[in-house]
Amino acid sequence: MIDPIILQQGSDWRAQAEVFDEIFFVFLALGTLVGTIVVAYTLWNVFKYRDDGSEPKEDFDAPIVGELPTGQGGPKAKKLFLSFGLSAIVVISLVVYAYGLLLYVEEGPDTSDAGNIEITVEGYQFGWEYIYPNGYSTRGEMIVPADQRIDLNVTSRDVWHNFGSSELRIKSDAIPGEYSSTWFSVSSEDVEAQGGEATYRVECFELCGAGHSAMTGQITVLPQDEWEEWYAGTQGENTSSVDSAGAGNASSVDNAVIRGAPA
C-alpha cells in the first residue's frame, strides 16, 4: 500500500483529477514503451527468420503448432519464460501502484490537521440542491473554498440520479432514502489559473426523466478568505435559490425544506 502522506505535496492535497491523470499517463507511457519494444522485436525476428528460399540449417529447431517449446533449457524456452517473467513483473507492479492510488481516492486525504466541510447534495427532477453545515442551501451552484477537502453526502428526493463532474473526476449515485459519499479538493493554484474563481460543470449521469439533459449545475471554488466571508454572510439564512446557467429548471421549483446531512 502507498502511504497517503506520499500523495500529499507538503500541506497540499492531491485532487482526484490529478491522481487519475497520473494513472492514465503512467499506463499510457508504459504501454507505449512496451508496445514499441514488442513490435520492434517482432519485426526484427520476422526479418531475421524470413524465408529466403534457401534450405534451413540442420540445427534449426522449428516451432511446432500447438506445443510449448520446452527445449530442455534451449534458447526458445529461455526466451519464452523470460518474456513471461518480465510481463508478470510489469503487470504486478502496475496493479500494486494503481491499487495504492485508488485507495487514496477512496479514503481521501488525512484531515487530522484541518477540518473538512460536509455538504449534502440532494438531486430532484431536474436540479441539484446543496445544503451546507449551517443549514443554508443553494440550488444550481455549490460554492466551496480552495485547499480544503469537501465531503459530499449525495441523495435524491424522487428518482435515481447520479451526481458528478467530469473535470473533477467525481461521480456518486443519488438514491432516494440512501446516502452515498465522495470527496474532492481544488488547489489555490487552479483557482488562480482561472482568474481567482474556478468553475466546474456538474451533470446528472443517470437517465432520470424528460429533463435529464438539463439537469446540470456548477461548482464554484473561491480562495479561502473570500469563501469564509461569503459563508459568514449566510448565517441565519434559510434557503437561497441560485439562478445559474446550469441550474436546469431549479428556478421554477418552490424552495425545498432544508434537510440535514446523515448522522
Rank of each mutant, 00 (worst) to 15 (best):
S187D: 09
P223L: 04
A88H: 03
V26Y: 01
G100L: 02
I89Q: 02
R139C: 08
P109A: 07
L68P: 06
G66E: 01
R14G: 01
F205G: 06
A17E: 06
T182L: 04
E22L: 08
V202N: 09
N162L: 15
G127V: 03
L30P: 12
G100W: 02
G85W: 00
G35Y: 13
L102M: 10
W13R: 10
E107I: 10
P223M: 03
E228N: 03
P176M: 05
W13T: 10
E229K: 14
F163G: 13
S112F: 07
I175T: 15
A247H: 09
V121Y: 02
A146D: 04
L7M: 01
P133H: 03
A250C: 12
G260I: 05
V65W: 05
T182Y: 02
Y200T: 13
A247Q: 07
V253F: 06
D173W: 15
L222P: 00
E206G: 09
T42F: 14
S165Y: 10
R157V: 11
T216S: 08
A62D: 11
R50K: 13
G177R: 06
Q218N: 12
I143M: 02
W13V: 11
A98W: 00
L94A: 00
G74S: 00
T182C: 04
I23Q: 11
T138K: 05
S240M: 08
Q148H: 15
F60H: 12
A232Y: 00
F24K: 14
G31Q: 15
E58I: 11
S137P: 07
V221I: 07
R201M: 10
Q16H: 09
T220H: 03
E122A: 02
H161W: 15
E206H: 12
P4Y: 00
I219D: 02
F47E: 11
A77I: 02
E237T: 14
A256Y: 07
P109M: 06
S93Y: 01
Y136W: 02
Y200E: 10
R149I: 15
N162K: 15
